[in-house]
Design a protein around this nucleic acid. Structure first.
Lengths: 160, 160
DNA sequence: TTATAACCAAGTAAATGACTAGGTAATTAT
DNA sequence: ATAATTACCTAGTCATTTACTTGGTTATAA
């Protein structure tokens, strides 16, 4: 699993589509301006998203992009995998150079964790994200409320 | 949040420490050979881990590395943040260039998601990972069992 | 028929990833 | 004391990835 700023760009753009796609298609130019992402970079990202049927393009004036399916049918994992490519690491060949099982053991553990992260991201849809996070505290609250949400310093969550 | 192969290297190495640190410190040379990671690269990663007190170095012959605290006190998020640096994106300044609240809205949504991923990774400790994943199916199973778990090629899971 | 948009290809500067080379410093064994 | 072993440190390198630019082509609505 890879999760970089590229994936964030894609998710952000898809969120934009979700929020603004109800009244006609959204142009990349709009997303570019609103989200502060280069137009051509967006085109590249959307080429990947389109190839996975996550968005639908409409050409010509008045055109733009729609979501490829309903917002509750698109998971965050779908989006990230489309642009970031799910890198298949470890896997040490299954048999070759398995150092006393030690290497494979840790690799298996990482695989397990990796799978958990994946299914976690797969369990969150665009629709859900918009429902719980966005609409209640809309707009641009100054700054202080958000700081309390950040988990940076907290050490409370311990339940698996 | 960034989650790359660099973070995987760090987690893998820390897992190695967890599994083998009970009888004396583990040398980077051992980890390098067992896990197939360059020694100098490990040194760089461990410099970061050490600065965050996640590992303790012991110099001289017979030296090596211990975990900095108990395995159930070290979360995956701790490790990844140490080496990958938690990049604080979005946040659009709180006030400036807030495009009708649109940009901030999507950024808030991403922040929420980012926080969830973080607290998810913070909820998993090294000790937990070893307990559930590793010990039951130890060693290097040939290959087929693992394939069924991997979500790479499947397109079935769509339910949230 | 013209403007608007999606589409496409190639190249680029900067950052990152993973590694190499060549050290110094502390500690144990001889 | 001396030598071996290990952590620890700095700098540099090459390939890949990021994010972007330039310069197109197609399709479609006005």
């Amino acid at each position: 699993m890879r999760l970089s700023t590229k994936g964030r760009y894609a998710v952000t753009a898809m969120l934009d589509l979700t929020l603004n796609g109800s009244d006609g298609p959204v142009t990349l130019a709009e997303i570019s301006e609103t989200q502060g992402i280069s137009l051509s970079y967006l085109e590249q990202l959307f080429a990947a998203l389109r190839s996975k049927q996550l968005v639908k393009g409409v050409r010509g004036p008045g055109g733009g992009y729609y979501l490829g399916r309903e917002a509750d049918e698109i998971s965050i994992a779908d989006i990230i995998c489309a642009v970031d490519e799910w890198v298949e690491f470890t896997r040490c060949g299954g048999n070759r150079d398995c150092q006393d099982g030690k290497r494979c053991l840790t690799h298996n553990l990482w695989d397990d964790l990796s799978n958990e992260i994946f299914s976690f991201l797969q369990s969150i849809t665009l629709a859900e994200l918009v429902e719980r996070g966005g609409l209640k505290e809309q707009g641009c609250r100054k700054e202080k409320e958000k700081a309390s949400i950040m988990p940076t310093a907290t050490a409370d969550t311990a339940a698996a």
